[in-house]
């Protein structure tokens, strides 16, 4: 009965959704491989211990709390040393990270330090006593690789949103641990974290994404896209590279091969042609709606529902209709 490790990413003193996903995955892995314990680690400024209850709700038996005044922001070197020390000291069967910006930074460093295998950015997995097999989108999502890991612990980073949260409540034991290196000795230092737009939903977490392309003609017309997103209420705004290149939207809104890869419940593509590089980032969405005046636009090949027409005519009535539908709920 081996224990499973989960790295629980926090920001601003709160566990991120991806932290709960990592704990859920670790819980599943522990239960499927003989019922070991789930040990979740949090690193942060003094007070971060308060997230323990939330991690317990998703199945953490132990929460390892690493608090230090210099660790309010992510420190790649301190996190690598501290996670590696914990993994080297326990006989963990597997360790779960998120394939978030932070987890993608941390997991490979830990894998290299421990000389163990890492399955990166996976969407599903199966764990036995001997091997871990996992599904990983490769070739910009055009193919799915099934990878097999033999190292112990087997390291995994989970694609955000791929793991459905499941509660498995318990009252976790708290263990405190010191950082495995002096934060003052770190060479790489995060000096600030600047929040983009206060309450905006992140593309990776939003259930609905409304995305605009060059068909909007100019930056000011993105108001229509924003209004549609606001009508849904739970939507984030995305864009094509044509649009971010022209500075109509920030580069961080870009969806596609060289931007964000997203898979919301609903993706609404407005004035987007559907270039292969754009499809790479959104074709895994559950439901796709496209609005384009060109009936032959490639976006209609992946869209579940399409409206052929002028977006400047369609959007105002769609915004109204979505508002009404939401009000009726």
């Amino acid at each position: 009965m081996a224990n499973i490790f989960a790295f629980a990413e926090c920001r601003g003193g709160q566990p991120r959704k991806v932290a709960l996903e990592a704990v859920t995955a670790a819980r599943n892995a522990a239960d499927a491989s003989g019922g070991g314990e789930v040990h979740a680690m949090v690193i942060g400024a003094p007070g971060i211990q308060s997230v323990a209850a939330e991690l317990g709700k998703y199945g953490a038996d132990v929460v390892v709390v690493v608090e230090h005044a210099a660790l309010a922001h992510y420190s790649p070197e301190v996190a690598t040393a501290t996670v590696s020390a914990r993994l080297a000291g326990g006989s963990y069967r597997a360790a779960f990270f998120s394939a978030s910006a932070e987890g993608k930074d941390l997991a490979p460093r830990v894998a290299a330090r421990l000389r163990t295998g890492l399955a990166s950015d996976i969407t599903a997995f199966e764990l036995t006593a001997e091997v871990l097999t996992a599904q990983h989108p490769a070739y910009i999502g055009k193919a799915i690789a099934t990878v097999r890991l033999t190292g112990k612990p087997a390291l995994v980073s989970l694609r955000p949103g791929a793991m459905a949260l499941a509660e498995a409540p318990r009252n976790p034991r708290i263990e405190t641990a010191a950082p495995a290196m002096d934060p003052a000795a770190a060479r790489v230092v995060v000096s600030a974290v600047e929040q983009r737009g206060a309450a905006k939903l992140d593309l990776g977490e939003a259930p609905v994404i409304v995305s605009g392309g060059r068909g909007l003609k100019e930056a000011a017309n993105f108001k229509l896209v924003e209004d549609l997103a606001a009508a849904f209420g739970n939507a984030a705004v995305g864009a094509t590279r044509a649009v971010t290149d022209d500075g109509w939207r920030p580069a961080t809104d870009q969806i596609g091969q060289t931007g964000r890869m997203v898979s919301p419940q609903l993706y609404v593509a407005v004035g987007i042609s559907g270039a292969i590089q754009h499809l790479a980032g959104m074709r895994a969405s559950r439901v796709i709606v496209a609005i384009n005046r060109d009936k032959d636009a490639p976006i209609f090949k992946v869209a579940d529902y399409g409206i052929v027409g002028d977006l400047f005519e369609v959007l105002p009535s769609l915004i109204e209709a979505v508002r009404k539908a939401r009000a009726e709920e």
């Binding site: 097999t133 989108p137 490769a138 999502g141 055009k142 193919a143 799915i144 690789a145 099934t146 990878v147 097999r148 074709r283 895994a284 796709i288 009936k295 209609f300 090949k301 992946v302 869209a303 579940d304 529902y305 399409g306 409206i307 052929v308 027409g309 002028d310 005519e313 369609v314 105002p316 009535s317 769609l318």
Partner: peptide, 20 residues
């Protein structure tokens, strides 16, 4: 790598209609 496969094709979509 044990296997490389294409993801399931998206079911064919449809044009709901034209304009507003």
């Amino acid at each position: 790598i044990e296997r490389l496969e294409f993801p399931p094709e998206r079911a064919a979509g449809r044009i709901v209609g034209e304009g507003a």
